[in-house]
Design a protein around this nucleic acid. Sequence first.
DNA 1: GGTAGACCTGGACGC
DNA 2: GCGTCCAGGTCTACC
Length: 333
Amino acid sequence: MPRLTLTPPGDYDLARDVCSYGYFLLAPNRWHVEARTLTRVLSLPRGPVGVAISQPKGKALSVWLSHTLDTTNRAAAIIQLTRMLRLDDDEATIAEFHRVDPRFAASGRGRLFRSPTLFEDVIKTVTSCNVTWPSTVQMNLRLSDVLGHRIDAEPARIKGAKAPPSSSAFPLAATIARTRPQTLRARCRVGYRDRRIVELARLFRTPPKKGGIDTVFLEDPATPDDAVFDALVELPGIGPYAAANIMQLMGRYARLPLDTESVRHGRTLLGYKGSSAQVMKRLDEHYAPFGRHAFRSYWFELWEFYERKHGPAWGWERDSTGKMFTAALLNKA
DNA sequence: GGTAGACCTGGACGC
DNA sequence: GCGTCCAGGTCTACC
């Protein structure tokens, strides 16, 4: 079976750095606990490919492929894997975060898992709004199963895996753009998000000059945070929370995506009292000193709280532990 | 500028 | 097994 080898930053730990944000539990991603391997299908210019990513000797990453890639697809696969795994967050960046917030220096935490493309991150964020986590899991499973391109070949191999790897990719913007909202609602159970998801897909397919999303402008590090935020909240289905969440997925950590779970965290761990709006204001003030690393400090504080309840994240199964993250259950905990 | 209510789904709960 | 209630962020209408 063909294979790619990727050299990550010297401090990279696949299990820690993949199992660092909830999207590792969302289809088409599949984390195999015992094999400590991430599988999924990537959509490449010349068709989908199944990948199985592991770190056998604690250094280089092995990426087993369902079939051999030509030069174009190979280059595209490396770009997508680099984005998803945050391989471009180098040691110096993570060390800077640890200087700002030394609480995470020992664990080495600093990288946050994301999707291979901005489009997938935006749609995943929309599926996480106004819904409990198990529904988000289901929506992404169905989106991939119903609209994702399937691979014909055997999925990439995984030593010691209990669950089969998925054989569908996340749907392309082009596919969703030509799907009827009613189909999304009926078959993917996305509810009232149906039109918003189709509109977003169409905006991703439309050139910026004709009113489409200007991904170059959004992803340019020189673009100020405020300009990115203003552009994102103009999009259908994207409010202040979703915009801030998409920004952290883009590597902009100064803003906090605050939701009801943040309020629970502020009340139970930080002892804040008052209305939700008051608690959110205090949370913003609390993490402001961490500057451009604010979200990392907030998130890993929250993540370690989850890990104290449920064990290390690399041991979470999507269909059991991975479904437990609802405010109601956490409040009981 | 601030706020109330609708939008859907799925899980919890009571009967 | 059925009905009711509730959680969840965004959007629109209204003040």
